[in-house]
Design a protein around this nucleic acid. Structure first.
Lengths: 355, 355
DNA sequence: GAGCCCGATTGGATCGTTCAATTGAGAACG
DNA sequence: CGTTCTCAATTGAACGATCCAATCGGGCTC
């Protein structure tokens, strides 16, 4: 395989033809190979239907002419585009953008192997639904990947009602009865990992800084922290703070907690909040990882670049993409397919902020 | 306009029809409106060809049926897909990924207004060219946006030879004769801004930490620093260091420079390197922005989140996207269009690291 | 050697749209 | 009153692939 790739200087015949004239069609290939159109089509789509010698002859003709099937024609006939739509939200708060982007990268790579490309589109609010609508009805995409499934977001329900094939990255928090396929990451398990890591390091007073109570994801992540503490018979009272997802909020919350509860470690719902803790430590001359330990969530670029390094929960987005694409394939293969959910476990990237 | 949008509860008739049966075609609309197919087509694409009353009648039928033109059929006939291809490189070094992602977001939003969608694909090395090839010849995309135009990258030349319509984000460094449209950001102007900002703050010994000499972009950015210093009659000797784009390199380089040249400020070719400088300062108990000033490049998330905030050169990626899309439109409107280059100026985001 | 069967191959129809050429009605003109 | 001109609207033919039903050919059996 590898050797083969190196030896061939990039399919010279095809390249030679490529600069000239209009693109060759199936009929051109058929004529050149002395067979019918259908035979060429089979050579491309069902090679095992042809006799080996015919197949060889056709493939030579294909290579010589540099034939590539016209997508528009194929899409028209088969009513499929081999594209999956993904909506980019305009502005996401915090490092949700960064997480999203990592996911997009993974998705693009994974889709390629499944023969799909990713179509990005935009739109927000009610207009977003119009975007889905038009792409769907114009047969521009075969399916969607939906990413923001936060509470009260209408798009999942909306898509389901229209029988639009889609896979969600994110649990249907508001509807446990939902029967669409989804893939999500177990945030609770992630913070539990982080908390246990701190417990193993000898910390006993471990504080939580998370998001406000109406965030399902935030409460989920918080539950991992409290579970880990309770498991070891430790109390959580007075050690939790719930704020906005900004550096400033993290800074203030950690300052208050340090004064009132004297924790030796912080588990945070996001890298952003963890950065806020680092600010406070810097202001007070406390050394992260030595005097006070801190963990974040998302393993964003900041976590890698900041001074002693920020220990952070890493989401397995590559695996999410793989699972999403697999679901997508099932869904498109059998339209009546009943979707199922899949929960993946994150891992912990340990850096200087926990010693 | 706005009122109209609010009053209509999301085109109720269309919604009512949408869940049922197969998508309506042009012929269905024609029958319902009592006109021919072509008339409906004109109503959609050239409304001014119709008599006002006919137009109204057709549009009613369109709304009632919830008709949306089939893209595949349209693409087949017009030989255009209204998609622009963008390749996502697998791994970019440093925060190039983050910059790229900001650009992708901007591009998606800008394209939408021009009636285009963005098709993401992947591939690296020689396989990347195959990706371009197949998308182009299969008429999957109308044009490409090319982002990595670093020295020696074959794709620009390759695309030009095949007369593939494309616009580059990035100058053709290796070929000043190149006649394809491109948009780039004046990195030199960016570092000049940063350096002047430091000069205005009273600094006179300003060091440079950049990339190795074979990086054109790196040398370009460096030139802004040296120009600004020379303008004020200041020397640059002994104040420059050229290293890899990693935090560790930045840390080491700044340590050496502090010992040997005693600068009071650092201008860096990237936020990553600037973070390295912050590490060194932290280790030596020097306060960024107070004892030593630092500037980065890219205005990445790190720059916002890190302790006193990192002053950084911000690339106007939204403007780049707008210019790229405009070029794309010119290119596709007049295929013989001679491409021209456009150089945009970055701005400086001032934060705590410069006082 | 006739009959049969199975797999490879063929021609025609079709997907839904737009392009090119044409028709028809009505106005303007001599 | 007939001719020309204009404009709106229509008809038939593409675009390039795949699906369908029918046909062809070779090998096998009896």
């Amino acid at each position: 395989m590898g050797l083969d790739r190196l030896e061939r200087p990039e399919r010279p015949e095809r390249l030679a033809q490529r600069t000239l004239g209009p693109a060759p069609t199936l009929a051109d290939v058929a004529e050149r190979a002395g067979v019918s159109r259908q035979t060429v089509s089979n050579a491309v789509n069902n090679p095992d239907l042809l006799r080996p010698d015919t197949l060889l002859r056709v493939q030579e003709a294909i290579d010589e002419l540099g034939y590539v099937p016209n997508r528009a024609a194929r899409n028209l006939r088969t009513r499929a585009s081999h594209l999956v739509g993904l909506r980019l939200s305009p502005v996401l708060e915090g490092n949700a953008t960064a997480v999203m982007d990592r996911f997009v990268h993974s998705l693009v790579w994974t889709s390629r192997e499944a023969g799909y490309h990713v179509l990005l589109f935009s739109g927000e609010g009610p207009a977003a639904l119009d975007g889905y609508e038009d792409l769907l009805r114009s047969t521009a995409v075969d399916a969607f990947v939906v990413t923001d499934t936060y509470l009260g977001n209408p798009q999942a329900t909306w898509l389901r009602e229209r029988r639009a094939p889609f896979v969600a990255f994110g649990r249907p928090w508001d509807d446990p009865e939902a029967r669409h396929p989804w893939v999500d990451i177990d945030g609770s398990a992630g913070t539990e990992l982080a908390t246990r890591h701190l417990l193993d390091k000898g910390h006993t007073r471990i504080a939580w800084i998370g998001w406000r109570k109406d965030s399902r994801i935030g409460e989920d992540r918080r539950s991992g922290w409290s579970r880990a503490l309770h498991e070891r018979g430790l109390s959580t009272t007075g050690l939790a703070s719930r704020v906005e997802d900004t550096v400033g909020s993290g800074r203030e919350a950690s300052a208050v907690l340090l004064d009132e509860a004297r924790p030796s470690a912080f588990v945070c719902a996001s890298d952003t909040l963890a950065m806020g803790v680092l600010h406070t430590l810097a202001e007070r001359g406390l050394r992260p990882g030595v005097d006070v330990a801190v963990t974040g969530f998302d393993d964003s670029q900041v976590a890698q670049l900041v001074h002693p390094g920020l220990t952070s929960v890493r989401q397995p987005l590559e695996d999410v993409a793989i699972a999403v694409v697999r679901s997508l394939e099932d869904l498109l293969a059998t339209p009546s397919h009943i979707g199922e959910g899949l929960l993946l476990s994150p891992s912990l990237t340990v850096r200087g902020s926990t010693g």
